[in-house]
């Protein structure tokens, strides 16, 4: 949680640094949209910590916390976000398209697009006699996409080892869940797909871990798919630069920060002292800062690399440049 948070803090700092006094989305070390994970880290840590290396993840357009929780190298994530040659995809993907084949991890910028692939990965695991599960992460607003319903239904029909994790931050860009979604809890929709529906409203990684473990036991046993919805908070808006003026003040005042809450809990339970927590936090920050420096110092890719990569065997017949 802390690594993802500090990575996002540094990204935010660098992002805004290069975009003042005039905000130009294309300017600076980190251009383009950035959907930071501030506030949602507990969802990733709680769920991904229950997975094994056999399991597959498809993440969202807001993928940083999920990627860090899965153990992707922070240096490579940051290089990719800065469009550097030694990024995960050599700069071809960018912040919404983080891939690591060795971690069975991909993310995508189209809402609910990870549903089909994660279910297909689950199907492949079953066909191969492999215990792996497909896990698709979604925001709560993505549940209104056709792909969600099509794939949940298929996962129910085929009884796939599949978990759909819905991170409910209450906002689909500027539209509140209550204005876009006919049910209060998307986990209730599980009934429509003969799936198990679970809901966790604490944004606490231990509670989430327990629920995810239950989900995995259920789906690995052949009982069918699971929708696990997690109440969480989007602390930095849809994308960096979003002032969130559409969020009511009283809701903003009630936003919770899982990193602070969890630290307080661990201290209250006597698991960590305040100084141990400080020390841990400092160590994580130093590691992330080192990765940031590495990424800043890394070279940009050769522009010619843009012209290859459509196919496994590069082919002739492409249009001329």
């Amino acid at each position: 949680m802390l690594a993802s948070r500090h990575m996002d803090d540094r990204i935010m700092e660098l992002y805004y640094r290069d975009k003042t006094p005039v905000f130009d989305i294309a300017a600076g070390l980190i251009p383009g949209e950035i959907h930071s994970s501030h506030g949602q880290e507990a969802c990733a840590v709680g769920t991904v910590s229950a997975l094994t290396g056999d399991d597959w993840i498809t993440a969202t357009h807001r993928p940083h916390h999920t990627a860090v929780a899965r153990g992707l190298e922070i240096k490579q994530i940051l290089c990719e976000i800065m469009g550097k040659a030694n990024g995960l995809s050599g700069g071809k993907g960018g912040h919404m398209h983080l891939y690591s084949a060795k971690h069975n991890f991909s993310s995508s910028g189209i809402i609910a697009e990870g549903m089909g692939p994660a279910a297909g990965m689950a199907l492949a695991c079953r066909m191969q006699g492999n215990p792996g599960v497909g896990v698709c992460f979604l925001g709560e607003a993505a549940v209104n996409q056709g792909a969600f319903h099509e794939v949940m239904n298929m996962a129910g029909v085929y009884k796939l080892p599949f978990v759909c994790v819905v991170e409910d931050n209450n906002w689909g860009v500027s539209v509140a869940k209550s204005a876009s979604t006919a049910v209060a809890r998307n986990s209730d929709r599980a009934a429509a797909y003969n799936a198990l529906g679970l809901y966790v409203d604490t944004n606490d990684p231990e509670d989430i871990h327990a629920a995810m473990s239950k989900a995995l036991r259920h789906t690995r046993s052949g009982s069918g798919p699971v929708i696990l919805e997690l109440k969480t908070y989007r602390l930095q808006g849809h994308m960096l630069g979003d002032p969130q003026h559409y969020v009511p003040d009283e809701e903003k005042a009630a936003f919770r920060d899982c990193t602070l809450d969890y630290r307080a809990k661990l201290e209250a339970e006597g698991v960590l002292t305040a100084s141990e927590a400080d020390e841990l936090q400092a160590r994580v920050k130093a590691e992330v800062d080192e990765a940031v420096e590495f990424a800043i110092a890394s070279p940009l890719p050769d522009a010619e690399n843009a012209l290859s990569g459509n196919f496994v065997d590069e082919i002739t017949g492409r249009a001329n440049i």
Binding site: T58, N104, M115, G116, G120, M121, L123, A124, A147, Y158
Partner: peptide, 24 residues
């Protein structure tokens, strides 16, 4: 494998199966 009339779903599903080592 017969599928429901869910083209977005089953093309996505096949893509995932292909990524995970099958040849759909």
């Amino acid at each position: 494998l017969d599928t429901p009339i869910s083209e977005t779903g089953f093309i996505g599903l096949a893509t995932g199966a292909a990524i995970a080592g099958m040849r759909p």
